[in-house]
Design a protein around this nucleic acid. Structure first.
Lengths: 339, 339
DNA sequence: CAGCCTTTTGCAAACGATTGAAACCCCCTA
DNA sequence: TAGGGGGTTTCAATCGTTTGCAAAAGGCTG
C-alpha cells in the first residue's frame, strides 16, 4: 500500500475478478451481472477509488490539461485572466497548469517546453516583454498543439488570439482628454515590441490627428517597465524641461500613478492644470488620490474567452482558425481627469 | 503524424533499432555504440524529441506536479503566494496545477478530487472561508499524499503548515495604536472559522490586556466577507451609535479602507481623531489617501516556503513532520495612524 | 575451427485503464 | 448428447518509457 490510491487492479484482486470486469462495472457497461457490479461499486466507494488520470491520458492521448504561460501572476490584470481561465476550464473538466515567465524569454521557452513535455492539450500564452524570437512558439504550432494568445498577441503566427481593443481604448482616453480641453498631451509609452503598446500609441496618435492637434514626438516617452518610479522620473524630467503639458495618457496605471506623483510633487493641481488617464483599471486606481481615470480591460472575460477558444480548437479536428477576438474596453472617468 | 510530438518509437522505427536502444542512447547509458548513439541523438534533435512526461509519470509513479488549491487567484496576497510557489517548483523541475475554490466548500472538494485523480505528488492548500468539514482533506492524508497548508491552516490534521504570525502581527498593530494614544479601539474582525482571523482577534485582545485597557465586546464587529462596503457599513453603524472611538484595527486592508471611508464621510480627521491600521499590506494600501498603515505578510516567501516544505516531504520516505512554519510580519506605519 | 569473452542490441514486463475479440458457463433444444 | 445461444467474464493489445535479463554478433585464442 505505498502509493495510497486504489487502482482497478486492487479491486480486481480483492474480488478475484479481472480488471476488465471492474472497469466495465464502473462504467455501467452492458454485460456485467448485477451482483458483480454491485460488489465492484461498493468496494470502489469504500476505497474511494479515483480513475488514474495519468493512465487515461496515456491511453487516450489526451490529458485534459490546459497549459498557461503568463508573464506574472501578481499583476492584477493577469490574475483576473487566470481566474477566468480556471473557471471556464474547470467547468469543462480540464485542469490548468500555470507557468510564469517573469517577463524573461528563456523562462518562457522553458515553460513551453515543460508544458509540451507534459502533453497539455492546448496552450494559452501571453508573451513576455523580452520575447521577440518566436522559435519556441513556432515549434508548438508545427507539432500541432492548439495555441491561443491572450492580451499580448503575436503577429504572423498561425494561432488565434484574444485581445482588448487597445487602439480604441487609447483613442477613447486621449479623446476624453482633448474634450476636457487638453492640447499638450504627454504619452508615457510602453516597450515597442509589445503590440499592445504599439496599438495604444497608435490610438494616441490617431486621436490627436482627428482633433487636429499636431503630433510632437518629444511628448512620447518610453517607460519600458511600466513601473511607478520609472514613470515618475520620466514625468519629472518632462516637467522640468519647461514643455507645455496639460494632459498625460499613460500606457498603464502604474505609470499613470508615477505621473501623478511627479505632478503632485511640483505642486501642479490635478486635474485642473494637468489631467491624467491610465490604462488597465487596476484595482488600486479607484482608491488612490486623486482617483485615476483609466481604461478598463475585461480580464476575467478575456480568460474565459481564451479558454473557450482553446477548448473549441482542442475538440475540433480542423486546423486553427486564426481568429482574433477583440474585447471592448471602457473608459472609466475619475478625479484625475474629471474637470 | 497526428499527435505531432515524436516518440521513442518513431525514432526507433526510422533507425530500424529497438526502443530500448533509443532510450539508452538518449540517457548516455553504457553499452551503446558511439555510432548508434550519434544517430539517435541527431534524430532526436532534428525532431525536437521531448520525453513524454505522462508515460514517465505512469512508470515512475511520480508526476512531478504540485497541486495548489487556493481561495482566489485575484487577491493580491494569494497571487504573490502563487508566484512564490511557481518559482520554487519550477526551480526543482516541478509543474504547478492550480485550482481556485472561489471560497466555496464544494468547489474546494472537487478541486482536491481532481488533483488527486491527476496524481499530483503533493498538495498545497489554503482552505476556503466556507470550509469546516474536513473529510476531503482527511482522505488526502489517509491516502498518503503529502499536503501542506498555507496561510489558512487547519488544526488537528496531520500536515505541516506555513503561516504568518497573525497573533503577533495583530498585537503589534494594536500596540502601535495604543502607543499613539488610542484607548477605544474597534476591531473589524473576520469570520471565526478561519484560524487566521481568530489569531488576529486574540492578538487584539492580548494587546489591550497587556496595556490594561478593558476589553469591550461591543468593540468587536465581524465583517464576514472582508469587503469594503461591508466594513464601511459596519463602521458607520458604530460611529452613529455614539460610542467613543479613537482607533480601528481591521482584519484586512479592504475592511480598513471601508472604515476610512466611513470615518471620512462623517468628517472625523484621520489619524488625529481616529487612527486606522489594516492587515495584509495590500498593494493599494500605500497608494490610498490617507495611506493605510498595515501589517505586511510575506506572501512570496510563504509560497516558496510552502513549496520547499512539500518538496521535502515528497522526497523523504518518512511521514509528515507536522511542522508549523511561522513567518514574521512587519508593521508598516503610514498616514492613517502616524500622528 | 570450436569455444569463450566482450560489445552491443533486443525482448518482455511493468505502470493503470480501456476495449474488441475470444472464451467460458449454463441451459435449452433437437 | 451434441450443438446452439445468451449471459458473463477474461485475454491481449495499446498508450510511451524504462530496465533486468537474454541473446546475438564479432573477435580472439588455443
Amino acid at each position: 500500500m505505498k502509493s495510497g490510491q486504489v487502482t482497478i487492479k486492487d479491486i480486481a484482486k480483492e474480488l478475484n475478478i479481472s480488471c476488465s470486469t471492474v472497469s466495465r462495472a464502473l462504467k455501467d457497461f452492458p454485460g456485467i451481472s448485477p451482483t458483480t457490479r454491485k460488489a465492484v461499486v461498493e468496494l470502489a466507494n469504500k476505497y474511494n477509488y479515483r480513475p488514474n488520470a495519468i493512465a487515461l491520458s496515456l491511453r487516450n492521448q489526451k490529458t485534459n490539461v490546459i497549459g498557461v504561460v503568463i508573464p506574472e501572476t501578481v499583476h492584477f490584470f493577469f490574475s483576473t485572466v487566470i481566474s477566468g481561465i480556471e473557471d471556464e476550464a474547470m467547468k469543462e473538466g480540464y485542469n490548468v497548469m500555470i507557468c510564469q515567465s517573469n517577463e524573461q524569454y528563456e523562462r518562457e521557452a522553458d515553460s513551453i517546453d515543460a508544458l509540451m513535455g507534459a502533453r497539455v492539450d492546448g496552450l494559452l500564452v501571453s508573451i513576455s516583454r523580452e520575447t521577440s524570437d518566436l522559435q519556441h512558439l513556432e515549434k508548438v504550432v508545427k507539432e500541432g498543439t492548439p495555441m491561443v494568445f491572450f492580451d499580448r498577441l503575436v503577429e504572423g503566427m498561425n494561432a488565434s488570439s484574444v485581445i482588448v481593443d487597445d487602439y480604441q481604448g487609447a483613442y477613447d482616453a486621449v479623446e476624453h482628454l482633448i474634450k476636457k480641453g487638453c492640447k499638450h498631451i504627454v504619452h508615457l509609452a510602453g516597450p515597442d515590441n509589445l503590440i499592445i503598446c504599439r496599438k495604444r500609441k497608435e490610438g494616441y496618435i490617431s486621436a490627436l490627428e482627428d482633433h487636429e492637434i499636431p503630433l510632437d514626438e518629444s511628448y512620447i516617452v518610453e517607460c519600458r517597465f511600466g513601473e511607478e518610479a520609472e514613470a515618475e522620473k520620466a514625468m519629472t524630467h518632462l516637467l522640468e524641461s519647461g514643455m507645455a503639458i496639460d494632459g498625460v495618457f499613460a500606457n498603464n496605471d502604474m505609470a499613470g500613478l508615477g505621473a501623478i506623483s511627479a505632478i503632485k510633487k511640483v505642486g501642479i493641481p490635478i486635474p485642473e492644470e494637468i489631467a491624467v488617464v491610465g490604462f488597465s483599471n487596476w484595482q488600486f486606481s479607484s482608491l488612490v488620490n486623486p482617483s485615476l481615470s483609466s481604461i478598463s480591460q475585461p480580464g476575467y472575460e478575456m480568460g474565459r474567452e481564451a479558454a473557450r477558444l482553446i477548448l473549441v480548437e482542442i475538440n475540433s479536428k480542423e486546423p486553427s482558425k486564426r481568429e482574433v477576438t477583440i474585447l471592448d474596453t471602457e473608459l472609466i472617468v475619475r478625479d484625475s481627469s474629471n474637470r
